[in-house]
Structures are given as C-alpha cells and as structure tokens.
Amino acid sequence: MSMSINMKIISVILAAILTGAAAFGEETKDQTLNIAFISYANPQQVAYDSEAILKYLEPRLGIPVKGFITLDYGSSIEAMRSDKADLAFVDPLAFMMAHEQIGAVPLLLEVYQNGPSYHASVWVRRDGSAAKLEDLKGKTIAYADQVDMSGHLLPRNVFNRAGLLRGNRPEGNFFKQVYFAGGDEQAIRAVLNGFVEAAGISQYAYLLLRPEERDLVMPIANSIESPSHLIMARKGLPEEVREKLKDALLALDWKKPEDKVILDKLYGVRGFSAASLSDFSEVAKIAARHGFVKNPDLFSE
C-alpha cells in the first residue's frame, strides 16, 4: 500500500544523510546490497553510526553497500518483501514472522556480554513489596508492547512457567491489570515511579534509566534465554554474497580497537555468531502460543 511512498521518502532523507548521494534505491538491486537498520530512538544517530559498517563491508563484498533506517520491524520486513532490503536487523519475533511469511533467512546473531542470547526479566522496585513472582498476585504489571519478544512474550512466559498465569487474557487470574506502556523505557519508568508494581521487559532495560536511578530497580525472575537480535537475509540473496557477509562480519573482533569502533556503533554489539533456524525452536513455541507464529515446527531441530 503506502509502503512504496514511505520507502521513497525515507530513502531520500536517509540517502542524503548516509551518503550525500541524491538517488537511493533506484533500481540498484542487482549490484547493491541494501541494509535496513532499525532505529529505536534516534534515527539520525543510527544513520551516522551505520556509516562505519557500510564502509567496512563494501570492499569485502566487492559491491556497493547502502543503508537506510526504519523505525519499526514491520517496515523492515515490508522492505525485504519488496526486494528493497537484502539484510535487516530484527528481534527474534520479527524474524520468525518474516521467516514464516516471506522466507527470510537467519544469518548472524548479535553477541553481547552474555553471548548470542538474551532474556527478559521481571523488574520491581528494590524497596517495593514484591520479592518473588507470587507476591505480584493482584498487582499491576507493565509490558513494553503487544508485539515484542522480550517486552511481552518472554516475560509473560515466566508467569506461565511458574503456573501463575493461564488462559488467553493477559491478566489471567493473577494480575489486577496489565499495561502495554509503549516501550521498554516507559515500562521501566512506570516501575521506578511506582505506577505499577512490576515490568516484564528486557534484561537490559535498566540501562535506559539514568545512572543514579538504576540501583532502585531489580529483577526478581528471568525468562528462558532467547537467541539475540539478529541480522536476517532476504530469501533470494545469493549464497555467495551471504557467505562473504558472514565471513566479513564474523571476522570483527571486539578486542581489536579498529573493529571495536565499528561494533560500538553497531548497536554496541561485541560481535556476531552464526545463526540457524533451530536456535529459535523454544521461542517459536512461545510465539505460536500467542498466534504470532503459525507453524513452530519450521524452527524445530
């Protein structure tokens, strides 16, 4: 629908930011690798930062590499569906949906200090009354967003696994009220300010608080580990390009200062690790439970 218009406008703006070139995405599919970067907060910054990786990749792939920014996963997936993006940075949920719907391929998982995985946590105020999950009965919780792996499905699963939540309603017979606050930061701040008793969001959400606020919240339970955010590739991207990409990105070493500069600008990852469909087998079941994935067997070993 309005996607193409959107993409054009984004392209014009971002082409100007990224390369200074006038035309972007104009029928360059065969020769150019197009990467969709997701911006969570500050697209200008992401645009600026992404130059480092584009510069790194281009000589190693031997084809022009261009980037553009999207503000949500839906736009990245739509761009890939219409062959305007060859690679996209996505979270595991968006990836699984893209795989099921447009055949996107998992390429590389982002590596953070705990390796190529992360989890969600149930956060409370350190001086609050809840010390374990059971204490949240009859209380309120904030998630980040309905469509969010670590900001909804994973933490909700924590309560499922503990046998505290059943059925389809987010409240179940357990919570007084569930809020979808609109983002990790809104959710963690809702806990910090005492508007809700708990927040179910990423293990890293405390980093969104100001340094002096971070010690005021703490996690009381963690979800299962999920594969990290990842780089996925368009189904039709030639095998040869895919392999070159993998080699180039896997070679980045956080311990080397020149590589660290690139990685720090790339969402602060420490490196990459090869991804396979079976990495997603557990989280696919959780996503299927809420209807986001129809056929979790696509991801079984």
């Binding site: 907060a41 949500d72 839906g74 967003d145 969010d148 900001g151 609109g182 890293y204």
Partner: peptide
Amino acid sequence: MILSLKTLRKYEIHSF
C-alpha cells in the same frame, strides 16, 4: 542495543 528499545510507541508501527 539488544533492547527492544521502542521508545517509539507501539502505534508507530505502521504509522510510518
């Protein structure tokens, strides 16, 4: 970052 830092609220999905 690995956060689903959607400082942009949910409604912005599709409000592109």
